[in-house]
Simulated assay, not measured.
Amino acid sequence: MPNKHNLATVAELKEKLSRAQLLLIGEYRGLTVAEMSELRKAVRPTNAEVVVAKNTLTKIAAQEAGLQDLDDLLGGPIALTIAYDDPVATAKALNDYLKNAKKAMPIRGGLLGQTRLRGEDLERVASTPSREQSLARILGGVNAPASRIVGALNGVMRNIAYIMAQVGEGKGKAGGAAAEA
């Protein structure tokens, strides 16, 4: 019979895992409390969190949340990095932290949406453009033809204004010459 604390933990993990855009499972063996706090602080600005959970409870919560193929990643002391918004920003923050950390925290793998990741995929995810960068590229591509059209129309209008100014100056000179004669 499961106790109330474990049931509450499974419910909380299920809720977090069901909202996860990115889930990374790493082994935190050897990390101090201070280093885990630094890791949590590193990913917090990206709307992500690092959770230490029991493997059995994580398996149950993952199954209830509909996440498959995680059983082989669970075992030993694990930490779950869960990103709720931008998975790329979280992957970058985690990757930067791991590069600068004194002790390594091996990433076993995880999920990006429903796609299974291996541990070495973290760097690949971290190197992809962020959501904002991707949107800027798309908007730049959409905006470029419009900018060229506006530039071309401005050039035509400028040429027409120049021609009209020349014609106006010519008529003024021709009208003045006719009056003198």
Results as ranks from 00 to 15, higher is better:
residue 167 V to S: 12
residue 85 D to E: 15
residue 58 T to N: 05
residue 12 E to H: 07
residue 150 V to L: 15
residue 109 G to L: 05
residue 129 P to L: 09
residue 76 G to C: 09
residue 179 A to L: 07
residue 139 L to E: 15
residue 117 L to E: 03
residue 131 R to G: 03
residue 144 A to I: 08
residue 157 M to Q: 14
residue 137 R to C: 02
residue 70 L to D: 02
residue 30 G to Q: 08
residue 147 S to G: 14
residue 134 S to I: 00
residue 18 S to Y: 05
residue 125 V to K: 00
residue 35 E to T: 09
residue 66 G to S: 07
residue 14 K to M: 14
residue 1 M to K: 10
residue 94 L to G: 01
residue 137 R to V: 11
residue 158 R to H: 08
residue 156 V to F: 12
residue 32 T to S: 15
residue 89 A to N: 14
residue 41 K to Q: 15
residue 162 Y to T: 11
residue 55 N to P: 06
residue 30 G to W: 03
residue 29 R to Y: 05
residue 158 R to T: 07
residue 107 I to E: 00
residue 20 A to F: 04
residue 30 G to K: 06
residue 121 D to Y: 07
residue 142 V to K: 13
residue 92 K to I: 09
residue 55 N to K: 08
residue 85 D to I: 05
residue 122 L to K: 00
residue 130 S to D: 13
residue 132 E to K: 08
residue 43 V to W: 00
residue 60 I to Y: 02
residue 90 T to H: 04
residue 158 R to E: 04
residue 43 V to H: 00
residue 51 V to E: 07
residue 67 L to W: 01
residue 114 Q to W: 06
residue 72 D to G: 06
residue 113 G to P: 09
residue 73 L to E: 03
residue 26 G to W: 01
residue 106 P to V: 03
residue 108 R to L: 11
residue 1 M to G: 10
residue 101 A to R: 00
residue 151 G to C: 08
residue 147 S to W: 08
residue 45 P to D: 05
residue 177 A to M: 07
residue 11 A to M: 02
residue 159 N to R: 14
residue 169 E to T: 12
residue 122 L to Q: 00
residue 11 A to I: 01
residue 123 E to C: 04
residue 180 E to D: 13
residue 164 M to V: 10
residue 127 S to G: 09
residue 51 V to T: 14
residue 173 K to Q: 14
residue 39 L to T: 00
residue 23 L to G: 04
residue 11 A to H: 09
residue 117 L to W: 03
residue 157 M to Y: 10
residue 123 E to T: 14
residue 2 P to F: 13
residue 84 Y to Q: 07
residue 25 I to Q: 11
